[in-house]
Amino acid sequence: MLKVFFTAEDLLKVTVADTPAPLMELVLALMTLQRRDNRYVFGGWRRRTARGLPVQAEPLLQLLSPTGIGPLFLDPPSAGLEDGLSQVLATDRAVVEAELRRICAVDRPRTAWIRQLAAQDRHAWRILEHAITEAHRHILAVEWPRLQVAFHAEAAWRAHFLARHGLERTFTSLSVGLRWREMSLEINAPGTDREVTLRGEGVVLLPSLFWTGRVLVAPQPAGPALIVYPALTPLPLHDADTVGDPLAALLGGTRADTLRALTKPHTTTELARTLNVSVPAASMQARTLRDARLITTHRDGKAVLHWCTPLGVGLIAAPTTEPMNHRGVVAGG
């Protein structure tokens, strides 16, 4: 059992992440690659990803467990690959040593390369840098625009649910095997007996489009702790046609993608880039949704910004009335 103890200050500062974290998503994707659950959803993705995984990326698998255990310095919250990689490479030696000891004490083999990382061997760290870069190129780079659209739809839905149903139901709905008791969140994690006490810095709920396991808690050296949970609709299902997507069946696939994209403000040019269509086509989609009062448009300086209205967010949320994860998530990781 993993228990997370909150202070009153933490509960006053619970938010939903507004952007995906690239290195966090990359690490979780590599963990999911090693899992065997949710094979109907992730089976094809695992086969394709494993088949083309560059040899240079494989050392990362030594550090990352399918149970969700990995060194915390490997996936700092960042705006992009460059920023995140700089943070990884600048990690304090004492932190590196402590984190590598921790993961090896659980289920990671203490390989020669891991020992060299702990000793700050330059060649070993160059291998790590190349591994992250190659894994990102193979797994995330092509998928990133589609992942962002899916992420913002999930985050908007979760924020809507938080406002409507409050903290307790929001926390316990993140996955199966969660229970709120007084000022703590209990996470069913077989084989784990651990307590995490938050420091009043707040909490950010971070959905992952690749993770399939139990809810993960990642305290940060400074700032709010991250609670990472599986998104209701994982990325492979965003490949599906409109048959399984009531929103797309109602609006059409392109308009559904447009509405989901606009859970975050976009200019017309940004929207065209996100949807991979021309600027006039993006403008036409925005006009149709605006006429239906699903988005609003206003001018910010020279830019024209489009954004979902509450009615639009409600329509995105409508296909699922309760945020319970019925995809067979393994709560114990």
Rank of each mutant, 00 (worst) to 15 (best):
F5S: 14
L11Y: 07
T15H: 11
V16Q: 02
L26D: 00
V27K: 04
V27L: 02
L28T: 06
L30V: 06
M31E: 14
L33I: 12
R36M: 12
G44F: 11
G44V: 02
R46C: 04
G52R: 15
L53A: 10
Q56L: 13
Q62E: 15
L63R: 04
T67L: 09
T67V: 05
G68W: 01
I69T: 14
I69N: 12
P71D: 06
P77I: 04
S86W: 11
T91F: 05
E97Q: 15
E97G: 04
R102D: 06
C104R: 01
C104G: 01
D107H: 08
T111V: 06
T111H: 07
R115F: 03
H123A: 15
H123T: 15
W125H: 15
L128H: 06
I132P: 00
I132A: 00
T133W: 00
A135R: 03
A135V: 08
H136P: 00
R137V: 01
H138M: 06
H138G: 04
E143R: 00
W144A: 10
W144R: 11
R146C: 03
A150S: 02
H152Y: 08
R158H: 03
R158S: 03
A159D: 10
F161Q: 06
H165D: 02
G166C: 11
F171P: 01
S173K: 06
S175C: 05
V176F: 03
V176A: 12
V176N: 13
L178P: 13
L185D: 03
I187M: 13
G191Q: 07
G191I: 11
E195W: 01
V196T: 14
T197N: 12
G202R: 11
V204D: 03
L206D: 02
S208P: 04
T212R: 11
R214G: 15
R214F: 02
L216A: 07
L216I: 08
V217K: 02
A218K: 10
G223E: 07
A225E: 05
I227P: 04
A231Y: 00
A231L: 03
T233K: 01
H238Q: 04
G244L: 14
D245I: 08
P246C: 10
L250T: 14
L251W: 07
G252P: 13
T254I: 15
R255C: 12
A256W: 05
A256H: 01
A256C: 09
D257I: 01
D257R: 09
A261R: 03
L262Q: 05
H266Q: 07
E270W: 03
E270H: 07
R273N: 13
T274N: 07
N276F: 04
M284P: 00
A286D: 04
D291T: 15
L294T: 11
W307M: 13
G314D: 07
A318Q: 14
A318V: 04
P319L: 06
M324K: 06
M324P: 00
G333E: 10
